[in-house]
Amino acid sequence: MYTNGYIFRYAAIMVIIAAAVLSTAAMFLKPFQEKNMAIEKMGGILISANIEGIETENTIEMFNQYVVEELVVDQDGKIVESFTEGKKETAKAFGLNLKTQLYKKSQGENFELPIYIIEKDGEKTYVFPLRGVGLWGPVWGNMALGSDFNTIKGVTFDHKGETPGLGAEISTSAFEEQFKGKKIFDENGNFKSIKVVKGGAQTLPANQQIHGVDAISGGTITSVGVNDMIDNVLQGYLPYIQKEK
C-alpha cells in the first residue's frame, strides 16, 4: 500500500518543510545571537584585563567606558587604524575576523590584528585576542599585558567543545590564574612566549619558570593547543610589541 514512490515523495516533502522552518528561524534569530556573541567577546576582553563587576546587561556600557583605544596593526607592527571616538563595538578592530587573519599569517600573506587598550586608574593594559586549535575544535582567548609589554596581567580562554573535566578546564579560573605575573620576554629581551608544561612548570629550569604554567592532566592535546596558540598569535604581534617596548 505504501509504494516506493510514495515513500520517496513523503521523505522529500518532509525534509523540505523541515529545512524551510529551520532556515526561517535561523534568519530571524541571527541578530540576537550575534549580539550575544559580541557581548561575550567584550566580556572576555574586559575580564582578561581584570575589570570587575561585569554582567551581561552592562557589558557594552563597561566596554565603552574602559576601552580607550582600539588598534589594528599589520604584520610589520604598523598601526593601520586607531579608533578612539564613538561606539567601541563599531571599530574595525572589533569586527576583525581573527580566524581569517591568522590563516593569512600562516600562508605568509599580509595580515591585520586587533589590539584593545584598556585604561583603569590611569594604568594602561594591552589586550591581545588569541585563537588556535584544541583537540575537538577551536580554542580562543585574550591575553592582557601591562604597559611594559612583558608582564601578563590576566588571560581568559574559551573553547568550542573540549572534553568536559579535562581539556575544558582551560576556561576555569584555576588554569587562567596561573598566567598572572608571568613574563613573555627573558632578561635579554628575547621572546619566550608562555609554555604550557606537561608535568608542571616546576620541571623547567629555575630561570625559565617565569615563562611556564602547568598543563592540564588528561588534557594534553588541549594544553599543547593553548601553548601553540599563545606562541603563534604573539609572534604576529611581535613587530608591534618590539616597536612599542
Partner: peptide, 8 residues
C-alpha cells in the same frame, strides 16, 4: 537556536 538567542 532560541536558547542561543535569548538565554545565551
Amino acid at each position: 537556536q532560541i536558547l542561543k538567542a535569548f538565554v545565551y
